Simulated scan of single mutants.
Amino acid sequence: MPLPPSPVAREHVHTRSMRVNAYARDDGQWDLEAELIDVKGYDFPKSGGAIHKAGQPVHHMHLRLTITEDFTITDAVAAYDAAPYNEYCSSIAPDYKDMVGMNLLRGFRQAVKARFARTEGCTHLSELSYILPTAAVQTMAGRRRKQAESDASQAEQGDKPARRPFHIEGCHALRVDSPMTLKFYPQWYVKPGSDTEPGTTEPGGATSAG
């Protein structure tokens, strides 16, 4: 459901939009293509006397990361369509190739902060990258579904899978004692108050993105 109407009159001043499209590649890897757009709700003067119109992007940038099945980045490409300082902003784009080798689910945000801090990077590109770990998890949803089906088949045969899916215990809805875990992952369900060991989490859990 949408947010309730504001109880106080207000004026729109800024909109930030972020979008991620994910693609399965023929070589077995995945592309995550992220886009950030900032627009103002008012006209304002730019240096030199030109007027920046309301709704015209102040920032418009793109970041594509190519990842393997274990969420390791094998390629990174950044590009700019709009930035306040034009080529002085966009000149940092090639540096984001240094994301290659990082893993989206293993301290990724901290690695980005360390490599692209302050003058070493673009604030907006770095912020755009922060949404990609959870987007990557969603991208792998089909693979996880197949794994869940395999786990269920093993459970029916009396065998418990060696690794617990990493999204269990990753949010409040999928606590090990949650009704949702009981319904969708009964083999990993633990009754509230039980001392039973719930299992071993699959390496690379979403909560370790940093």
Rank of each mutant, 00 (worst) to 15 (best):
G48L: 07
A34K: 01
S153D: 15
F166N: 08
D95C: 09
R164D: 07
L32A: 08
P45C: 03
A173C: 12
D27S: 09
D195Q: 12
G193K: 11
H14T: 13
K191D: 13
A79H: 12
E120A: 15
R106C: 12
G142D: 10
K191Q: 14
A78Q: 03
H52C: 03
P57C: 07
A76R: 00
M140L: 07
C122L: 02
E127C: 10
M18L: 15
D43A: 01
E156D: 12
R19S: 11
P203N: 13
V112D: 02
P179G: 00
A148G: 14
R115S: 05
R118L: 15
F116L: 07
G142Q: 09
Y85F: 14
H12P: 07
T66P: 07
L105E: 05
V39T: 13
W30M: 01
A155V: 10
V100K: 07
D26W: 14
P4R: 15
F71L: 02
R10E: 06
R143P: 00
D177T: 11
R64Y: 01
V137M: 11
E169R: 13
P2F: 14
R118K: 11
R106F: 10
L65N: 03
E149T: 03
G28V: 09
I37V: 15
R164G: 05
H14W: 00
M140S: 01
R164V: 14
N21Y: 07
A206P: 13
Y130I: 08
